[in-house]
């Protein structure tokens, strides 16, 4: 079975307060950088087996819906590459 490397990014939707992002913005501004806004997301790097790239994409979509993302508050994107 081919091995796929998957990268999933999960972000709080726009408009939902990102506390960590705000702290980072404040710290960077304190340091003198002209930062307007920071959003902090999560990145998952998943190594998996799948019959094809399409199959891998289908499974990753499922993983996002079932665990990695709450669609009420999160948005996400992912990419899948064969190793």
């Amino acid at each position: 079975m081919p091995i796929y490397e998957v990268v999933v990014e999960v972000w709080l939707k726009d408009g939902i307060v990102d506390a960590e992002g705000n702290s980072v913005t404040e710290a960077l501004r304190d340091m003198g950088y002209p930062v307007k806004d920071t959003r902090v997301g999560k990145v998952y790097r998943i190594t998996m087996e799948a019959a094809s790239k399409e199959e891998a994409e289908k499974l990753v979509e499922e993983m996002c819906r079932r665990l990695l993302v709450n669609p009420v508050k999160d948005k996400y994107l992912f990419r899948v590459e064969q190793r």
Binding site: V17, D18, R65, N70, P71, V72
Partner: peptide, 26 residues
């Protein structure tokens, strides 16, 4: 809420509600 037992209107794969970070971010 994550399980879908609340609000309990459906038991789909996805939650239909969320408890998101507090507005004041603390």
């Amino acid at each position: 809420v994550e399980l879908g037992l609340l609000p309990g209107l459906s038991y789909g794969d996805e939650p239909v509600a969320a408890l998101v970070p507090n507005t004041l971010a603390r």
